[in-house]
Design a binder for these strands. Sequence first.
RNA 1: GCCGCCGUAGCUCAGUGGUAGAGCACACCCUUGGUAAGGGUGAGGUCAUGGGUUCAAGUCCCAUCGGUGGCUCCA
Length: 694
Amino acid sequence: MPRITLPDGSVRPYDRPIRCDEIAADISPGLARAAVGARVDGVLCDLTTLVEDDAEVSLVTATKGRPDADPDALMLIRHSCAHVMAEAIQRLFPEVQLVYGPPLETGFYYDMAVPEDRPISSEDFEAIEKEMKRIVEEDRPFTRVDRPVPDGLAKLEAEGSKYKVDNARRAIDGGATELSWYVTGTPGEHWEDLCRGPHVPSTGRIGAFKVMSIAASYWHGDADSDRLTRVYGTAFVDRKQLKAHLVQLEEARKRDHRLLGKQLNLFHLDEAVGPGLVLWAPNGAIVRQELERFISTELTKQGYFPVYTPHIGKLDLYRTSGHFPYYQESQFPPLLAQEQLSRFAKEGCTCAELSNRMAKGDIEGYLLKPMNCPHHIKIFASQPHSYRDLPVRLAEFGTVYRWEQSGEIGGMTRVRCFTQDDAHLFCTEEQVAEELQQCLSLVKIIFTTLGMTDYRVRVSLRDPDSSKYVGDPANWDKAEEACRAAARSLGAPFSEEVGEAAFYGPKIDFVVKDVVGREWQLGTVQVDYNLPERFDLTYIGPDNQPHRPVMIHRAPFGSFERFVAVLIEHFAGAFPTWLAPEQVRVLPISDKSLEYARRVQGDLKAAGIRAGLDASSERIQAKVKVAADAKIPYQLVVGPRDAERDEVSVRARGVRHDLGAIDRDACVETLAEEVAGRGAVTLRERHFAEALAT
RNA sequence: GCCGCCGUAGCUCAGUGGUAGAGCACACCCUUGGUAAGGGUGAGGUCAUGGGUUCAAGUCCCAUCGGUGGCUCCA
């Protein structure tokens, strides 16, 4: 007979198998009302689940009007809401076949096969929601019906849904001994769906929901398989939570780097230049340049040598490295040698022939470089190296070109031309561990300085079943173990992900999320035993014999394009003073103070500060507003009173009032310190701590 | 690359198949005002591009280009 242990440690003995909702009712009527599901020995399940043996049971509750919700409750609500949406859609579009509808972190989706002649569009959302509302208001119970495998399969086949048959087969392959359906209401009478569950007790427990968007997907995620329509929605315990979520989404969109990039004139994408080709406007260029300076200082400290290399190289170079022709489809087409080009033009050679002959190697040309490593390798190989010289660390802000799929390009996060803060380290096998650690600490310095604490670490390994990786498996094992060890030494949690490695070696990646929740790889450190082999790199060891060096590829920022995109969103465009394109703006009260304002600006510029001046004929109110919209860290308002006392009146970004006046020289000096120290000291804290508090 | 949606002034957006609009920004004039937008005047458009339907297309249809939301991909 089951003894039920509750989360508070108390134990309830029962003399018969007991349902979770009965347990809830035994504890309190309030709990019984609030419960939407249960966890039995940690496994989320229906409230009607029968507990037959001793178990730890906790009830999952969803209480309207409470700001915090149990993530499991939201999971149940969303999964259930996916059913309600599917029912609504099938009522409106009887031809639609359902595929798969799971809950997500922020909502749910349902994949479905929609007939081509009547696609679902966002214009249908209102009707769908209306239908859903009706189902929710009817408050019909979610009823589970289990069927033996043969009966279940027969039923699905009779219904003719290949997708659901496939789902069932997968469940069976996964060890299922029964197939379960969930009916929203009475079996035999109401709508039902093959589903593993669990669900909330009844449709009425879905507090508030919204159909969000529509997108395409592929069956099983396979681009060659059926195209499906994916409808996204979200659901919450109550309206208030849903609204808070929508407001949050709206706020996030305001931080979007594409929007801020335009508003703050940071970068520009121009149709005439080409998709995925970023033009850095002066303001964005300053941010990038500051980052370049910042990391250059660190690189010097860590013993890197700067190098410069061209943007193209001969095809043969990339045949050696393995970039060509294996990754041909993700590269810009090769540049043909001039005389060959004209010859082929005369011969009327087709593109397919051309690409064929290039792949075979009987045509020479140049490739826009997809990576910097081959060039750096050639610099290393241009001289003999003793083990005493190692490690050799070659660094370059190297621009690379990759032919990303058109649908993937967007903003500055995924582009076709980008500049990496790249470097390649050539070292002995014994040196790998320490070099890796140094690289990781560099990444950490960057993230810490910029206050970006919200990242995750991923150790990216090869997929042994895939053929896209080059080199000896034994070397891969060594490299992967080195990455694991280095990640461990970071002291932060990390996940290992198979199939994420580069073609030549495993990586330690730093991954962050953008405002819309998409993940991006920024910093990366990669161990490579393969390219040294392909290029036959050697150094002379203490035994006077040639040895193979190991390479480490690393880019702490990843690429400036992507990093700055994430940085814009991280700061919501309000860059710290050292990064801000315009660090200070001087605002004269009127033309009468223009001369003094110019003097202040001159002092600031002389101190190396990027200072602007608003010499327009607007009133001070307007100047303050415009400067605030431009997210300039400091505004110095100057009028006759300030000029007389050699002072400036300071306003700080984000503060709605005037902080007060201070001595002009003191202001310039502290600002210079703030910039030099990258925010270790700030003008606002040092001189206006009191004024800030009010 | 695939599917949906979108494309009107530098920006944000209105615009029943019947003469191309607003706000901001810009230029000039007035205003010289002590802390989150003073007032006026003006200039600015191959309505993404190319076809089609129509007496008539920014508006309807098709294609292309570009953007966007996903999917797939990301060496």
